[in-house]
Design a binder for these strands. Structure first.
Length: 577
RNA sequence: CGGAGCGUAGCUCAGCCUGGUAGAGCACUUGGUUUGGGACCAAGACGUCGCAGGUUCAAAUCCUGUCGCUCCGACCA
C-alpha cells in the first residue's frame, strides 16, 4: 500500500475525548473515529488489525474443533422471554419495533439463538459433542460507555457454545476452549493469565476469565505468587482467620450513641469500639425482598458474592426509608439482634462465625448494643463467604500474602450446564434411550477490546508497538525524498515490489514529507519494521533497517530484502511471555 | 439515574467574569525557501460560537430550557 493512496489520518494532538493511553493512540494513529459515545468507525488501518485478530481467533477455534456459524444480530424478543432473560438482562437489551409494532432485541449475546438451533438440529448423542462459534457485533445498552473500544454500545465478540452429553464431556469441551484461549492471546502478543471467576446466578462450578494486566483495567484480580492462585476479586477468597472469640461477659447491654452513624464514629472516643469488634449490618433488597447482611466492621461486602449466594438476580442496597420500615431504625443504628421481622433472612459472613463480645446497632436510632455474641444473640439464616478480600491477606492454599492488581478482561469461559438447553428444548436421545438436555458451555472473547488491550500493553512514548502477528503492515519503507527518478525512490520501489511479491504486507511512505514527519508517523502507527532509504546512507552503499523499538542496522541495498525476511521470520516465531 | 465539567474553524484551545466588527496554534490551499527526527516566509480558504427561546439598541458573552460529550458516583449506612 502506498501511503498517498491510503487513509491514515494521524494526529499530532490528542483529541479531548480520550482518557486512557490506548484510546488516545487508537485515535492518534488513525485506527478509529468516533461516531458518538460508544460507537466507532474502524478506519482502514484499524480494520486490518481487527481482521488479524479475528483470523487468529478463527484459526485457534477451528483447531479446537469448533464450527463457525453466523447468527442474526436482530432477534425476536419472544426467545428472550422464553429463556427468562427478557427480565433478568433487561438493562442491557436494546429493543426495537418494526412497522407492525412487533418488538425485537439487538443481541447482546446468543445463547437463546444457538440453543434453539441445537434444539432443531441435534437429536442424538451420536451428533455430540458440538461447538459452534461466530464472530459478530454485539449490542449492549451500557450504563456508561467509556475508554474507546473497551466498553462500547456495540462491539465485536467471538462467542462459542458447546453442547455435550454429560458433565464430564462438557468439562472436556471447556478445557479445549481454555487452552485455545491461552493460545489466542499469546499469539496476539498479550501477556495474559486466567483467573477464577464468579459464575453468578447461573451457578455451575467452572468459570475463568482471561485477564490482561493493565492499570487502566476495570477488573481487580487477586493472585498469589506462591501457588499461582488467581481469581477475580468478585470471587476471590483468602485464608484469613475468623474473628477471635472472647470471654462472653454479661448479657447484652444497650447504650446510647447519639449521632453515631458510622463504623468509624463508633471506633472513636468516647465509644472506642474497634471496627474489628463491630458487626456491620447492611440491608439489601434482593429480588424485591429485604435481607440483612452481617459482615465485620472492618470488612467490605462483596455484592457479587451476595448475589451468587442468595441466588438473587437483582440486589441493591435498601434506601434509608426501606431500612426504617423493615427494622425500625435508620442506617447507622441497624442490627440483627432485636426487632428482626419474621421472614427476613439474615446472611452472615463466615468471618463472624463464633465471634463474641461484638457491638452492633440496636435497631433504635441513636443506640447500639454491646457484648453481643453471634451464636447466642443472632439468628443467622445462612453463613456465607460475603466479604471482599484485601491485599496482604494469607492465601487460602499456601498462606503467602495475596496481591491485587488491575486487569482488562478479554475472554471468559463458562460452563453453563443445562439451564438454556432445558428452557429452549435442546434435548438429545442418549445411548440408553433416555431424552436428556445438552450440557452446555459458553465462551466469549471481546475482539475489539482485545485490540485495544494490545495497544494498552504495547506502546512507548512514540506510539504503538504492534506485535508482528497483528500489525496492520509488517514493513514500512521510508524513502527520504520521493522524486520518481531519484536513486532513493527507485530503490524504494524495487524493495517494495520484491517484498510484496514475497507476500509481505508493506506500506510505502511515498508522501513528499520531511524525514521527521515520516519517522514519527511510522512509529506512531507502530509498524514493526522500517526500511529507511536516504541519499546520505545510499551514498555509503547502505539502507537502514530499524525494528520498531529496536536498534537501527545498516545493510547493502541488495541485501535489504533478505534481511527483512530474516527479521520477519525471527519475529513471527517469538513466543510472548 | 445522581453529581460535576465542557460544547467557539477539521484538531487542541483562548475570548465569556465586566455584552459592542469571531481569535491563536496545528491541519488545509497557493507560491517561495528548505529537506536525516513532527521546517520557515508570504498569501489564502475554513465559523448558523450545540440548538431553541428570553433580556437588551446590541448576545459567543447575561437568563431559561433543551440536546450532546467527558469525568465521578450509582456496594461499604
Amino acid at each position: 500500500m502506498r501511503w498517498t493512496q491510503a487513509l491514515i489520518p494521524t494526529l499530532k494532538e490528542t483529541p479531548a475525548e480520550a482518557e486512557i493511553l490506548s484510546h488516545k493512540l487508537l485515535l492518534r494513529a488513525g485506527l478509529i473515529r468516533k461516531l458518538t459515545g460508544g460507537l466507532y468507525t474502524f478506519l482502514p488501518l484499524g480494520l486490518r488489525v481487527l481482521r488479524k485478530i479475528e483470523q487468529i481467533v478463527r484459526e485457534e477455534m477451528d483447531r479446537a474443533g469448533a464450527l463457525e456459524v453466523l447468527m442474526p444480530a436482530l432477534q425476536p424478543s419472544e426467545i428472550w422471554q422464553q429463556s427468562g432473560r427478557y427480565e433478568t438482562a433487561a438493562e442491557v437489551l436494546f429493543k426495537v419495533r418494526d412497522r407492525a409494532k412487533k418488538e425485537w432485541v439487538l443481541g447482546p449475546t446468543h445463547e437463546e439463538v444457538i440453543t434453539l438451533l441445537a434444539a432443531g438440529e441435534i437429536s442424538s448423542y451420536r451428533q455430540l459433542p458440538k461447538n459452534f462459534y461466530q464472530i459478530q457485533m454485539k449490542f449492549r445498552d451500557e450504563i456508561r460507555p467509556r475508554f474507546g473500544l473497551m466498553r462500547a454500545k456495540e462491539f465485536i465478540m467471538k462467542d462459542a457454545y458447546s453442547f455435550d452429553v454429560s458433565d464430564e464431556a462438557a468439562m472436556a469441551s471447556y478445557r479445549k476452549m481454555y487452552d485455545a484461549y491461552t493460545r489466542i492471546f499469546n499469539r496476539c502478543g498479550l501477556k495474559n493469565f486466567p483467573v477464577e471467576a464468579d459464575t453468578g446466578v447461573i451457578g455451575g462450578s467452572h468459570s475463568h476469565e482471561f485477564m490482561v494486566p493493565a492499570e487502566t483495567g476495570e477488573n481487580e484480580v487477586v493472585f498469589c505468587e506462591g501457588c499461582g492462585y488467581a481469581a477475580n476479586i468478585e470471587k476471590a477468597t483468602s485464608g484469613i482467620p475468623a474473628t477471635a472469640a472472647r470471654e462472653i461477659g454479661a448479657a447484652i447491654e444497650k447504650f446510647a450513641t447519639p449521632g453515631v452513624a458510622t463504623i468509624e464514629a463508633l471506633s472513636k472516643a468516647p465509644y472506642s469500639v474497634p471496627a474489628n469488634r463491630q458487626i456491620k449490618t447492611l440491608v439489601y433488597i434482593a429480588d424485591s425482598k429485604p435481607v440483612l447482611i452481617l459482615v465485620r466492621g472492618d470488612d467490605q461486602l462483596n455484592e457479587t458474592k451476595l448475589m451468587a449466594r442468595a441466588g438473587a438476580t437483582a440486589a441493591r442496597p435498601a434506601t434509608p426509608e426501606e431500612c426504617a420500615a423493615a427494622l425500625g431504625a435508620k442506617p447507622g443504628s441497624l442490627g440483627a439482634v432485636v426487632n428482626v421481622p419474621a421472614g427476613v433472612k439474615v446472611f452472615a459472613d463466615e468471618r463472624l462465625r463464633g465471634a463474641t463480645d461484638m457491638t452492633t446497632g440496636a435497631n433504635e436510632d441513636g443506640f447500639h448494643l454491646k457484648s453481643v455474641s453471634m451464636e447466642r444473640d443472632i439468628k443467622v439464616t445462612n453463613w456465607f463467604d460475603l466479604r471482599t478480600v484485601s491485599a496482604g491477606e494469607p492465601c487460602a492454599k499456601c498462606a503467602k500474602p495475596l496481591k491485587i492488581r488491575r486487569a482488562i478482561e478479554v475472554g471468559h469461559v463458562f460452563k453453563l450446564g443445562t439451564k438454556y438447553s432445558e428452557k429452549m428444548g435442546a434435548l438429545f436421545v442418549d445411548a440408553d434411550g433416555q431424552r436428556k438436555p445438552c450440557v452446555m458451555g459458553c465462551y466469549g472473547i471481546g475482539v475489539t477490546r482485545t485490540l485495544q488491550a494490545v495497544i494498552e500493553q504495547s506502546n512507548d512514548k512514540d506510539g504503538i508497538l504492534w506485535p508482528l502477528s497483528v500489525a496492520p503492515y509488517a514493513v514500512c519503507i521510508t524513502p527520504l525524498g520521493v522524486a520518481a527518478d531519484s536513486a532513493v525512490m527507485q530503490l524504494a520501489e524495487k524493495i517494495y515490489s520484491e517484498l510484496t511479491a514475497l507476500g509481505v504486507e508493506v506500506l510505502l511512505d511515498d508522501r513528499d514529507e520531511r524525514p521527521g514527519v515520516k519517522f514519527k508517523d511510522s512509529e506512531l502507527i507502530g509498524i514493526p519494521l522500517r526500511v529507511g532509504i536516504g541519499e546520505k546512507s545510499l551514498a555509503k552503499g547502505e539502507v537502514e533497517i530499524k525494528p520498531r523499538g529496536g536498534a537501527l542496522s545498516a545493510v547493502k541495498p541488495d541485501e535489504a530484502v533478505a534481511k527483512v525476511m530474516e527479521l520477519l521470520k525471527a519475529g513471527s516465531t517469538v513466543s510472548p511471555t
